[in-house]
Amino acid sequence: MTQEVTHWLDNLLKEIEGIEVRRKSSRRVRVDVPADALPALLELLQGRAGYIHLSAISCVDWIDDDEFELVYHVWSYENHSLVSAHIRIAREPGVYLSVYDLYQPAGFFERDIHEMYGIQFEGSPNMEKFILTEWDGPPPMRKEFDSEAYINEHLSWQEYNPEWLQELVAEGGGVIIPPEEQRFSQKKK
């Protein structure tokens, strides 16, 4: 991206209130905006700067802050740069606006995030289940959902009892550290 375009983009972004722009590299820009300013920002980026490709929407569950972070990665085929717009929304009720009207790919990402994190995107065309059709537990990508605990509770480990193991047990040996203990526990004081 040329210097000129860089300046032009920076100036453009200044139009949004409460925006924080960080240029991470020549082709990566991080933008933090208040949640309610995001649609305007995207509109600006798309309409005036050629960021027509929504590469992805990523969701991060910052459970300690009681917030979800939504990151909108948009790419400009003209500027050859990728802007990642970060917003934070409250974890409860976990509702945000759909950007489907601006970017059609948002339909998939919003549906996915809804399924995995339980965030409701108002105005998104399709909030149906897609991957977790038979799942009625909590949205599994939320940090409070402990999938390892769930697995240990609902499924059992394959039991083996080969001859060599029986021989070792007869000798006084055998399984000492099962893998789940090594992985899931840490020495308690």
Binding site: M116, F130, I131, L132, T133, P140, M141, S147
Partner: peptide, 12 residues
């Protein structure tokens, strides 16, 4: 489209 048959929860 109906997915999920190959879902292994990689991200989790």
């Amino acid at each position: 489209a109906d997915g999920g048959y190959l879902h292994r929860g990689f991200e989790k």
